[in-house]
Structures are given as C-alpha cells and as structure tokens.
Amino acid sequence: MTKTMKPMLLCAGALLLATGAHAGEVHVLNWKGYGADEPFATKAFEEMTGDTVVNDFFNSEQEMLTKLRTNPGLYDVVMINAAFMRQALEENLVQPIDTAKISNYGDLDPDQAASAMLNEDGKTYGVPWTWGLTTIAINDKAFDTAPTSIREMWKPEHEGRVTIRDDAVEAIQLGALATGQNINDIKDMSAVETSLTELLPNVRTFWSAENDWNQMVASNQIDLGTYWSGSAGRAKAQFNLPVSLAVPEEGAVGWLDSFAIPVGSDNVEGAEKFINYMISPEFYVEWDQTVGAPVSASRRAVAALPEDAFNRRVMGSPEIAERVQFQQPITDEQRESYLKTWQKLKVGAN
C-alpha cells in the first residue's frame, strides 16, 4: 500500500494542485453534508471575504488521513475528530494555529478549547467546532417516564426491543459505561464482555444509519437504543418521530470535531477566516435551524439559538455537561482487539 499507492496518489495530487490551487481559494476537507459545504455557507463566506470555497470529502477518518498524507499543500482546512488529532500530529500533517487571528475563538467553551487532544506544548492544533453524544434515545410510546439508567436496556421487558450500533468501539464503551468504568481506561474487560453478552438477547438488530433507527421507531419495532444526540434531535424536530434523548446517570460518550490547518497550506489566512466563520453564531444558527446540526463548541453560537432549540435546551443543560466522557484516541491495536471481542460476542450469542 505505502510503497505502490503513495507515488500514484502523489502524482494525482500534484495534478490537482497544478490545476486547482489559485490564491483566494480555500480548500476544505470534511464529511459530505456536514456544514462546511452548505450552499448558504459557501456563498456567505465568498461574499464576506472574496475567497471561494472548494470542498473535498472523505468517507472515513482513515481516508481523511490518507488524503492529507498524499496531497501535501492541497488543503487549507481539514475537519478532524479530536480523537484522531494525535495521529495527525504524530505524522506531522497539521500545523499550529494562531488563535489570535480567529476573533470568535474566545467564544468557545474553555474546556473544549483547552482540550489536551487539540493542544500540545502550548500550541493549538485544532479549533473545536461541534460536539455531540453517543447515548441512549427512547421511543416515547414505550415509556411514561424516561429511564434514568443505562441498565434499562438490559431489562427483560425490552427483550427484542433494543437496538445498538454494529460498531465494536461503541459497543465496548457501552459495556464500560454500564459496568461503571471509564470509557478511555477500561480495566475490567471481562465485566464488559459479560454485560454485553447479557444485553445481546435484548437486541432486535444493529442499526448502521440514522434512517434505520428512525424507521424502527416509526414502525414501533424498538423501545430504546443507543443513538447520536444530533440524530435524536433531528428525528424529533424534522421527522416528527416520538424520539427523546435520555442521557443516563452512568454517563455518555462524547465526541468533539475540530478544524485544523494542514501543513503546507498556501492560504493560511483564508483558512483562519473560514474557521472563524464556521464557529460564528451567524453560520451556526442558520445551519442548525435550516439543516440541523450538532452542538456548536461556541457558547455564543449556542446562546444565539431560539430558546426551545434542542441544542440549547437539552444539550446545553448542566446534567449533560456533568455526565459526558469525551472519547480519547484509540490505538489501532485497541481497535482490532475491540473488534475481535465484539465479533466473538455476536457469534457467541447465536
């Protein structure tokens, strides 16, 4: 892979560079349909700064890293999940950011801005953008009062009415939460395995996309399951489904997305302006209200939302801030061993 594909991709990258990079362009690498490529946003940014936005997309974090490696100098802004920043730093793919040039930086949640995942040796490599939770959501029809414990999923009355995502890391972390462990430092793996083994008979199926979850609720096939906070908010607000978030007292897994500037960017100034716009209340309010967004890392942006907005009312509540455990980087070895454990549990449950 490294030996044969790298030169080829480098050539392709060089070609792109030769044809694509003019001054006044900001090349952004992000998930497709994730805010930065909204037409209203690129238009507003162009009118504001005169720089055009050129979007490129990735389908997995691995692909994002590969694109950075093989196209040095092509991208000016890249969206990186904080848990992957360590790897990008180790490979020297991103450069320090002068936060003084980003006027909205002061609006960010101080804890998130100072996150050890985004800062090293006093330098800032990532500007927090959005965050969210992987937690429990319920089908309102199945509950009179929302459950407060994650153990609700294990109860026999929900047999065949629970769904979780078919993702080894998420599953193991769910087991860790249920056994009262720190998701980033799982000491008792056998307790996690036992707990998941007990959970599996309750699982109706695994969901893989938002649509799966929403359809199962719409056809009343499930009572509760793990879900993403933004997705639960969207299910209720946009699709009118009886879905509520129930962040359990045992805690919830948090993720943090950030913007970084790749090494070799030839438009650092444009990149800073773009990041500044991405964390501005103007952009965030329109994104959240017209499309639906996760929670902004900017406190001023969240405060600019209407009072009853999900991301202000529910996600902004102090209980959630107390319960969230942010996900730390996971090594490839851990990921592989989690997958193996998870596969074994799934096979064992048959």
Binding site: D166, D167, L200, T205, D332, L339
Partner: peptide, 23 residues
C-alpha cells in the same frame, strides 16, 4: 448484515469489517 440483524455475523461480514472498520 441487512436482514440478519444480530444473527447476521458470518465469515463475509467479518472480512468486510477487517477492511472497513479496523483497516
């Protein structure tokens, strides 16, 4: 994967996981 739910773990899905989930 689509129709089997939690009974759908087979040799093919495990191979797919190696390529897509853990690289």
């Amino acid at each position: 994967r689509i129709l089997g739910g939690r009974n759908g773990t087979l040799f093919g899905t495990v191979i797919e996981d190696q390529f897509t989930a853990v690289y």
